[in-house]
Simulated scan of single mutants.
Amino acid sequence: MRIDGRVVTPTGVVTGSVEVTGTRIGAVTPGEVADPQWIVPGFVDMHNHGGGGDTFTTGDPDAAVRAAAFHLRHGTTTLFASLVSSPFPLMRAATSAFAPLVDAGVLAGIHFEGPYLSTVRCGAQNPDFLRDPSEEELTALLTLGGGAVRMVTIAPERPGALDAIQFLVAHGVIAAVGHTDATYDQTLAAVDAGASVGTHVFNGMRPPHHREPGPVFALLGAASVVCEFVADGVHLHDGTLSFATTVTGADRAALVTDAMAAAGMPDGAYDLGGQEVTVSDRVARLTRDGAIAGSTLTMDAALRQAVGAGIPIVDACRMAATTPARAIGLGETVGSLQPGWRADLAILDADLRVVRVMRAGSWVS
């Protein structure tokens, strides 16, 4: 199968075609084409709580399948199911429910955003469920998941956090820093312990100050850390997004949605981790205090926002696909239009809106 257009690769735009053989990309070939459509790698979303009216946060496998299908139609061909801070029985139940979906390829893994987070910077996380890291809990979840648990977000200032980070990394799980009131030095200690992702950097963190730089500067400056950015124009001003990516470069910046069930749905009341969320004019906030509560974002919209903020489309696609794929250990399989890699791609029109999506060589209906 040959698909013609402007092909976005990690090193530049190739006007020509993508050859698909079975489930893999056979070649990217320069040539004259009649259709100026964009052909971009399928998006990789490493932080996603749901969409299309369905959520990952309750551990319902049927809802998870529907939420993944919603985001697939928006070009996300690889995604983590992210849970919010929860009681341990729910974490166990979700791990059991989602592990078969990871095995089947519907999900790329499970991300526990909490419950080992800061009460001061909990944001939309339910404060009733926050607690110190527990190696006993983590051992049980990793054993139960059989490789399905792929990332855990931790506040490094909590007692036992550094030990938990070392434990996760030793077991092949990504340790992320987020929802934290940590100092600059505490954050760097987490990085030294093996933390390699900054969870929605700037949001849910002690704000940077020129005399107390805190976690934001530590994560942006750490060469081993991939920084997540929620590019919806709400979580981050476009100027902040543009500036931050000049510090990290596209190879350390990952666009994420942090989407909740309300993505793609009308304004109204929704639930997130047992808390009511009010969505108005695409912005999701906790009803009780107005804190930003996830997003209604999709990855194609995040790409448009990044390009609109002045980020070149090649870099924006690296941030939406190539870099997050590498961050979650899939960097030699997905996230780039290269020969031999899985044929995951999205066709976009001149306005960068999704026209068609392919996953593993098959068009998504």
Rank of each mutant, 00 (worst) to 15 (best):
V102A: 10
G145N: 06
W38V: 01
S362T: 04
T95H: 08
E212L: 13
H237A: 13
A93L: 02
T199Y: 10
A68M: 09
F167D: 14
P89W: 11
D289R: 08
G329L: 07
L79Q: 03
T55A: 06
T11R: 05
G109P: 03
F80P: 02
C227I: 04
H237M: 05
S365V: 15
G16Q: 11
A343W: 03
G204K: 15
D54R: 04
A263R: 01
E276T: 15
A140G: 10
R158T: 10
S362K: 09
I110F: 12
G31I: 15
V256R: 03
G53K: 11
V201N: 00
G310S: 07
L162K: 09
G221P: 00
P312Q: 07
P41Q: 04
I292K: 10
R356S: 11
T248Q: 08
R356E: 14
V256M: 09
D35L: 01
A189H: 00
M46L: 15
L144E: 10
P115H: 14
V149Q: 08
M358E: 00
W363Y: 02
H200C: 09
S196D: 07
P159A: 14
D128N: 08
A176R: 10
E136Q: 12
V279E: 03
V234C: 09
G308M: 06
A190F: 04
T183V: 07
A327K: 08
P339C: 03
H74P: 00
L168T: 13
R356G: 10
F112D: 14
S362V: 13
